[in-house]
């Protein structure tokens, strides 16, 4: 439970960073004078000032799995499922390129009992940036406040079956099936979240994602109701990922 406290507190610390900096800029005049006097002190003291610790270019990578998709899969009880994981690289403790891969599917029924079924792979790539400002002399932290972007893509097949057309005036019913339809969808995501080290090399974090679909479906043509890795086929959708990962 302590680690969860640590996780929540790290988020609050991130949010509190901005006001702290703003206060530093508005230092009262007498204090500024004091600072000028300090500048005039011998250069020896300047040499004693702590240097910014050197940060390597490559600092390993984290392999992570999304727990939120597993939980939502269980709660939706078969309507749709999703499993995904990813690998995120640590460059200069600042930039975090990421590759995510997953499998998802849906078996949805309309109120008129028409069925939509799909299974497919999806992939995403993108980059996160650590938005947490650190002091010059502080060591790089493993707890991160990340913001970034993703480009996602899924190429998948789907069936839409049991579409009933009933003629209410002339009488008669016809059933329409569209099988083995293939679609490729591309989208982008704006991502923000936190990641904290709960035990040595084990990380936990969450990201909120604003997903935006690129391209539109042609009116009258058969289109998928659900897109693996994206969700329901609407121009914009929000989602949450909750990841657990190991840093190598």
């Amino acid at each position: 439970m302590q680690s969860i406290y640590k996780y929540i507190i790290s988020l609050l610390v991130c949010l509190a960073m901005y006001p702290v900096h703003a206060q530093e800029k508005n230092v009262p005049a007498p204090e500024k004078q004091g600072q000028e006097q300090k500048k005039q002190e011998p250069e020896q003291k300047k040499k004693e000032e702590p240097k910014e610790p050197e940060v390597r270019f490559f600092n390993g990578f984290t392999v992570q799995v999304d727990v939120a998709s597993l939980a939502t899969t269980a709660l939706k009880l078969g309507d749709s499922y999703s499993m995904e994981g990813g690998i995120q690289f640590d460059l200069k403790k600042k930039y975090y390129p990421v590759f995510e891969l997953g499998v998802a599917g849906a078996d949805k029924f309309s109120s008129a009992n028409a069925e939509f079924k799909t299974n497919g792979l999806f992939g995403r790539f993108g980059i996160d940036m650590n938005m947490m400002k650190k002091k010059k002399d502080s060591k790089p932290t493993s707890n991160l406040f990340l913001a970034g972007v993703r480009i996602g893509m899924s190429h998948f097949a789907y069936d839409v079956t049991n579409l009933q057309i009933t003629d209410g005036y002339w009488g008669g019913t016809e059933t329409v099936d569209y099988k083995n339809q293939v679609s490729t969808k591309v989208w982008y995501e704006i991502v923000a979240g936190v990641r904290v080290e709960i035990i040595k090399n084990i990380f936990m974090g969450w990201t909120v994602r604003d997903k935006n679909l690129l391209g539109t479906d042609v009116s009258g043509e058969v289109f998928p109701a659900y897109i693996p890795g994206y969700g329901l086929n609407t121009s914009n959708i929000w989602s949450i990922n909750y990841t657990i990962g190991y840093h190598f």
Partner: peptide
């Protein structure tokens, strides 16, 4: 001719 609207709306002629 069949025209697909959506899963919820179904198809129309």
């Amino acid at each position: 001719k069949d025209e697909y609207l959506s899963l919820e709306c179904g198809c129309i002629k």
